[in-house]
Design a protein around this nucleic acid. Structure first.
Length: 292
DNA sequence: AACCAGGACACAA
DNA sequence: TTGTGTCATGGT
C-alpha cells in the first residue's frame, strides 16, 4: 500500500549537513538524489540541505518533529560553541575548513553498538557492517513508494537473542562476542544507558567501560555523541596524529599528559573541538591524496 | 601489494 | 606505567 509522505522545514543557519552526516559520528546516512536518507528514532527520514535550513521528509504522518530537531541539534548556537574553542592555530584551521560541522544527539544503544563495531575499521566499512546488522535483525520500516527498504536498528533484546555466528555473518569478525555480551548486559538492564546522563562524566565512562569491547575511546564516543557529555574527548588514531603533530610536535607526550591536555585545553565544548579536529585531519588528507 | 583502519585486551618488561 | 602481539576484514 502506498504511504503518504510528510514534510517539515527546520530552520538552521551555518549547518553543513553533508559534513555532519559523513564525519564518522553516525553510520546510517547515505546520499540519495540531492539529499540524505537514514533512520532516526525508528523512522525513515530523508534530509535535504537548504541555504537557511533543512528540509525533512518522513514516510508517515508526523505531528511533532522534536525527535528530529533534537537529533540534529538544530537549536544549538554554533557560534557560541566555536567562540569557546581555544584561539590557537590548529583550531583556527579546523574551524576554517569545517565551519557548519555539527554534533548530533544520537540514541545511546545504537551509538554504543555501532562504536563497538568501529574498532580498527574504516568509516566505510563500519557503515557496511551496521547496514548488514540492521537488514538481518532490524524491523522493517514504512518507506515512501519507490524508495529502498529501510530497517530499524535492532534492539538490545533482539541482538541478545542471536548467536555469535549470526553476528559474524555480518562481517564484524572479532567484535561479534563484544557486541553480543554488551547487548545482553543492556537487555538485562545490568547497564542502564538512559540513566548515564544523570551521572558524572567519570562514573558514566566507568559504567560503559565495564562492557566487554568498550575501552576509553569507545566510551567517550558514546558519552559525546549520545550521552550529552560535551567534554568527552574520544582519542582515536586521527586525533592522536593531530595532537602529536599540531600540539606536541616531536615531544612525545605521555598518555597521562595527553589526557590532562585534552581535558583542559579545549574548553567546555572539548568534544566539539575534537570533532572539528577529526574531520579536519581526515578531509585534509583525502584532499591531498591522489584519486584513481 | 603492503599498509592501515574512529580499539580492546591479555601479557610482557 | 608503557610496549607488543592478537583478533577479522577489506579499502586505499
Amino acid at each position: 500500500m502506498p504511504v503518504a509522505s510528510c514534510q517539515c522545514w527546520l530552520p538552521a543557519c551555518d549547518y553543513d549537513l553533508a559534513a555532519t552526516l559523513t564525519s564518522g559520528q553516525a553510520f546510517r546516512w547515505q546520499p540519495q538524489d540531492d539529499g540524505w536518507t537514514g533512520v532516526v528514532a525508528g523512522r525513515w527520514v530523508q534530509l535535504t540541505s537548504r541555504p537557511d535550513g533543512i528540509l525533512a521528509r518522513t514516510a508517515t504522518l508526523q505531528t511533532d518533529w522534536r525527535w528530529l530537531a533534537d537529533y540534529l541539534r538544530v537549536e544549538e548556537n554554533l557560534a557560541a560553541v566555536l567562540e569557546s574553542f581555544p584561539d590557537d592555530e590548529p583550531m583556527r584551521a579546523a574551524v576554517a575548513a569545517c565551519r557548519g560541522l555539527r554534533l548530533l544527539r544520537q540514541e545511546p544503544w545504537e551509538c554504543l553498538a555501532s562504536f563497538i563495531l568501529s574498532s580498527t575499521k574504516q568509516i566505510v566499512q563500519i557503515q557496511q557492517i551496521v547496514a548488514l546488522v540492521c537488514e538481518c535483525f532490524g524491523e522493517p520500516l514504512p518507506v515512501p513508494e519507490g524508495v529502498a527498504l529501510a530497517f530499524a536498528f535492532p534492539s538490545p533484546q533482539r541482538l541478545a537473542a542471536v548467536t555469535e555466528a549470526d553476528l559474524r555473518a555480518c562481517k564484524m569478525g572479532f567484535r561479534a562476542p563484544y557486541l553480543l555480551a554488551t547487548a545482553r548486559r543492556v537487555a538485562s538492564t545490568a547497564l542502564d544507558l538512559a540513566g548515564l546522563s544523570s551521572l558524572s562524566l567519570e562514573s558514566a565512562r566507568a559504567e560503559l567501560m565495564s562492557c566487554p569491547g568498550v575501552g576509553r575511546k569507545i566510551a567517550d564516543c558514546v558519552l559525546l555523541f549520545a550521552g550529552g557529555f560535551p567534554q568527552a574527548f574520544p582519542v582515536d588514531v586521527w586525533i592522536m596524529k593531530a595532537l602529536q603533530q599540531l600540539y606536541f610536535s616531536r615531544r612525545r607526550a605521555s598518555r597521562r599528559r595527553l589526557e590532562k591536555f585534552t581535558a583542559t585545553h579545549f574548553g567546555p565544548h572539548a568534544g566539539y573541538a575534537q570533532q572539528y579536529l577529526f574531520h579536519y585531519m581526515r578531509t585534509k588528507q583525502s584532499a591531498s591524496s591522489p584519486k584513481s
